[in-house]
């Protein structure tokens, strides 16, 4: 913006009228300098840059350093190199179990949650009383996770839970929804689907609103029925939204563990059946005080998520090209 700066060819630019009026510009005060167009953007950015340095870049480096040491946070750390990574990947049977649980949780919540959200969004978009439906379906997603966990702990309690007492009236058995090692993780998946349904419905209904009504009219004129409209128009045109929902849900599913932590008082039981890798890391760090190994687990999980995300993006980009 300086009046005499050379242009791309190195030629001096002619002075602007501004300079002609004030041949001697007023002396710049510090305030004017800070408020100038050159300095101001950096001042606007300064909180972000400071935060990025202290709470983003530094932690990433620091966490990697911690992962190369044995450290209980009370006595000084001891350098162990890559030992934690070696242990976690080759010797720790629990890690692989938690990774399996993580995959089961992420895939299960997508497999059940995404189709459900799509169908409900489809019903919701062309119905009366949208504000009412929306408020109802969004209730769980604006509720804190402690309330969600205890709502379901009370409903699903083995003996005194509403559900099992109701099943008892009907003469049916009383499954240990949250106490059976084979059933607990599936129950967690279902609770999570319940929590996330409103969010995914919203994304789908935003995608549905973007579909041009004339597509449907043209198809109707050609004699398509409602089912064909859904499978031949809605689903293909909703593809970008679906991909977005799938990818974001999968990433967040792989890193999620708060619900399991609160539901199981932090122990990931019964028999570690609900211990996902994030929770395993959290227990290791803040219950067992193994900061080094926990940081290694965090980085391994991050690497897994990164690889899966890249594969997904690749596969979907190919699929996306074909869809259009």
């Amino acid at each position: 913006m300086s009046d005499t700066s050379p242009d791309a060819t190195g030629r001096q630019l002619p002075a602007t009228p501004h300079e002609l009026i004030y041949p001697e510009p007023p002396r710049k005060t510090l305030g004017a300098l800070l408020g100038s167009q050159k300095i101001a953007p950096w001042l606007f950015l300064s909180p972000m840059l400071a935060f990025g340095a202290i709470f983003f870049i530094l932690p990433l480096i620091y966490a990697f350093y911690i992962s190369l040491t044995r450290w209980d946070s009370l006595s000084p750390p001891r350098w162990v190199g890559l030992d934690h990574y070696k242990y976690v990947l080759t010797m720790d049977p629990v890690f692989w179990k938690t990774l399996w649980n993580t995959m089961y949780f992420a895939a299960g919540s997508i497999g059940i949650g995404v189709p459900l959200a799509m169908v409900l969004a489809h019903a919701f978009t062309r119905s009366r009383g949208q504000t009412l439906w929306r408020s109802i379906y969004w209730l769980p997603m604006i509720t804190n996770v402690v309330a969600v966990a205890y709502i379901w702990k009370f409903v699903l309690d083995d003996r005194y839970g509403l559900l099992n007492r109701a099943l008892g009236v009907l003469g049916l058995g009383a499954p240990g929804w949250l106490t059976s090692p084979t059933l607990a993780l599936t129950s967690v998946v279902l609770i999570f689907v319940w929590m996330q349904l409103g969010h995914n419905m919203l994304l789908f209904s935003a995608g549905l609103a973007n579909i041009d009504e004339s597509c449907y009219e043209a198809a109707r004129l050609d004699g398509a029925n409602e089912r064909q409209l859904f499978t031949e128009i809605t689903i293909p045109l909703l593809m970008p939204t679906t991909l977005f929902v799938l990818i974001t849900n999968f990433i967040s599913g792989l890193s999620y563990f708060t619900l399991m932590l609160v539901l199981t008082d932090g122990n990931g039981g019964p028999l570690r059946s609900t211990t996902v890798t994030g929770l395993y890391m959290y227990q290791m760090a803040f219950s067992d005080l193994r900061m080094g190994r926990a940081s290694a687990v965090a980085y391994v999980l991050f690497a897994v998520i990164l690889v899966i995300t890249l594969i997904q993006l690749r596969v979907f980009r190919r699929g996306g090209v074909e869809a259009h």
């Binding site: 983003f56 990433l60 966490a63 911690i66 890193s255 760090a285 926990a294 998520i305």
Partner: peptide, 8 residues
């Protein structure tokens, strides 16, 4: 993901 930042 946020879990990467908890410990550091």
């Amino acid at each position: 993901p946020f879990f990467l930042f908890l410990i550091p």
